[in-house]
Amino acid sequence: MASMYFNEALREALQEEMREDESVILYGQDAGIYGGMFRVTQGLAAEFGSSRVKDSPISEAAMTGVAIGAAMMGLRPICEIMFMDWISITMEQLVNHAAALRYGYGGNCKVPMVLRCPLGAYGGGALHHSKSLESWLAHIPGLKVVMPSTPSDAKGLLKAAIRDDNPVIFLEHKLLYGTSGEAGDKNHIVPIGKADVKREGSDFTIIATGKMVLDSLAAAEQLQADDISCEVIDLRTIVPLDKECIVSSVKKTHRAVVVHEAWKTCGHGAEVVAVLMEEAFDYLDAPVLRVAGLDCQIPFSLPLEKVVIPGTQKIVEAVRATVNGD
């Protein structure tokens, strides 16, 4: 199996699903002829034509509403919001309609849509091109929130998201687009709602999402030199949360940290910690710490950005602090 970039794996997922199912369409700002800001949809307009791959106006709210309506009527629309910071503009449609209408209509419709959002700090994006807002969405019943960390998971999860009958928010960290790995064939589907143990370990559990999975793996490597064996769990899906996976790991290791780039206060890591309190309290030998984005707007200056965004070193420090504290 050939190695490919993360964005190529996403493109392959889109391409395969569009070839397989004529009801799959996609649109977004510059997603058509240009091929998307991060090149994910490159070539798709040429292959599938302008009736299935469209450039949309800069109208995030209407783009989302159109996806809801089209999904109700039998399409499987995929809509790209160029930077997740601007999902704020879609929130009325996402929260009050995409997430709500199947319930509000007593099950009389389905809303099988995917909203793809590049997210995360990538060096100088500043306040409006850097945010990780997944926790905001995880709060809303009716949505699913997916966040892969490898090309293989990106492809398999995007295919699963397109086939899912619910609105799925699909989050792609911008610094992952240039990472590479094997991505599986056209039958490669990763089920939504299943976390993945990216590295097995016996002393410590690091629970992470998106790009923070890579940083956690690097941290685990460093900590191995100190004889601390870390298990790294990639949640892959924030909603629904794979409680079984995290609880069973912590029952084995008795210590954990939760890592995400999203802001710390009310970040989804707090939810993970709460699950461990509720379901694994008796197995814990130390408090579960959070390594998360600092509760600050994301600054433009690189030295300042580095303070706000977590990374390998902060994860290593948190693990050591937990180990030394017990």
Binding site: I25, R52, A61, G65, V66, A67, G69, M73, G74, Q93
Partner: peptide, 14 residues
């Protein structure tokens, strides 16, 4: 309003 446009997009596409 956009939802109705979405219905219409489905009809047009189909």
């Amino acid at each position: 309003m956009a939802m109705a446009a979405g219905h219409a997009l489905a009809f047009q596409t189909l």
